[in-house]
Simulated assay, not measured.
Amino acid sequence: MDRLIDKVALVTGGSRGIGRAIAERLGRDGAVVAVGYAQNEPAATEVVRRITTAGGRAFPVRTELGTHGDAAALWAAFDQGITGYAPDGGVDIIVNNAAIGRSSNLEALTEAEFDRVFAVNVRAPFFIVQQGLKRLRDNGRIVNVSSGVGRIAMPEISAYCATKGALDNFTLNLAKELGPRGITVNSVAPGIVDTDTNAGWLRGNPEAEAYAAGLAALGRIGRPEDIADVVAFLVSDDARWVTGRVIDATGGAAL
């Protein structure tokens, strides 16, 4: 539990799914975890409770992403919550996990939906990092949660795919820019993961479950903990020499 002792981590979208698993894992590793969420306060409170019950430290950070000024609002909420944990208000780890998980196909996509998915999936992480740089300590870690669709074509959700391609490129450029400060920046690209977002079409549907498991070389559907463990490695000192990379965490999908 001491891998991240004295570290402060912000996890956006930390109230459920992959974000929840990441927040809980970093809490177990000793970090003070700011659990970002948009609307589901009970879920975020439960994540904080689980972390603190296990002996960790955490607090909720409520911000609706996808609007102008969202990054400033997030950091203002962070500043309020971090009091008592880190007097300097600093952060060591930023995990950009919050995202809109799907989009309409090319024919059905509207300009409003396009703008919305890019605002949450690309613009928000960009400005969260930009406005967090003064708080981010040297030798810190940034992890952007991307997707396997960065290398696997899925035309039915092409706008979503495009946001993840943009996020991966942001990772590459940010790693170059922040390298002199010892800050590493990487993307983690999950495949199909059994989360609430996918529950509607996946859980309890034998055909869908077989399809999803069959995509992976390892022969099963991903779990949130599979992704959280990869993130835990990237934010640890063990990954100090890894930066600017997209880490495939699809279980070997579409090889």
Rank of each mutant, 00 (worst) to 15 (best):
Asp88Trp: 12
Leu74Tyr: 01
Asp248Gly: 01
Ile183Cys: 02
Glu177Trp: 15
Leu218Val: 12
Ala119Met: 06
Gly89Pro: 00
Ala254Ile: 13
Arg141Gly: 09
Leu26Ala: 02
Gly81Trp: 09
Asp248Asn: 11
Ala31Gln: 03
Val145Asp: 08
Gly89Asn: 00
Asn105Cys: 13
Ala213Val: 11
Trp241Cys: 00
Val35Lys: 02
Gly55Lys: 01
Asn96Val: 09
Val95Lys: 00
Asn144Glu: 14
Gly132Val: 05
Glu209Gly: 07
Gly90Glu: 12
Ala153Glu: 11
Asp138Trp: 07
Val95Ser: 03
Ser103Pro: 06
Ala43His: 02
Ala77Tyr: 04
Ile22Leu: 05
Gly30Arg: 02
Met1Cys: 09
Val48Arg: 01
Arg57Pro: 05
Ala239Ser: 02
Asp237Glu: 11
Ala254Leu: 14
Trp75Ser: 05
Val35Arg: 04
Leu4Val: 08
Arg3Met: 03
Val8Gly: 02
Trp241Phe: 05
Gly69Pro: 10
Lys164Ile: 13
Thr83Asp: 04
Ala212Tyr: 02
Ile142Thr: 06
Tyr160His: 11
Ala124Arg: 10
Asn173Phe: 13
Gln131Ile: 10
Ile51Val: 09
Arg49Cys: 10
Ile51Ala: 04
Phe127Asn: 01
Asp168Cys: 13
Ala212Cys: 13
Leu178Pro: 00
Ala54Trp: 00
Val35Tyr: 00
Asp238Val: 04
Arg240His: 13
Asn144Lys: 14
Ala99Met: 14
Val47Pro: 06
Gly200Cys: 05
Gly81Met: 12
Trp75Gly: 04
Thr67Cys: 02
Asp115Arg: 10
Ala239Pro: 02
Ala112Gln: 15
Gly222Leu: 09
Asp168Phe: 14
Arg181Thr: 14
Cys161Thr: 15
Ala217Tyr: 14
Ala73Arg: 15
Ala23Phe: 01
Val48Ala: 04
Thr184Ala: 03
Leu202Thr: 06
Thr195Gln: 01
Val193Thr: 12
Ala213Trp: 14
Ala212Gly: 10
Asp226Gly: 12
Ala76Gln: 03
Ile93Thr: 04
Arg116Gly: 03
Val242Cys: 04
Val47Trp: 01
Ala99Tyr: 12
Ala86Thr: 10
Phe126Tyr: 15
Asn121Pro: 09
Gly222Lys: 06
Arg116Val: 05
Arg240Cys: 13
Glu207Pro: 08
Thr110Val: 08
Asn205Phe: 03
Ser104Asp: 13
Ala9Asn: 08
Leu133Gln: 12
Asp248Gln: 02
Leu215His: 05
Gly165Ser: 07
Leu255Lys: 10
Ala34Thr: 01
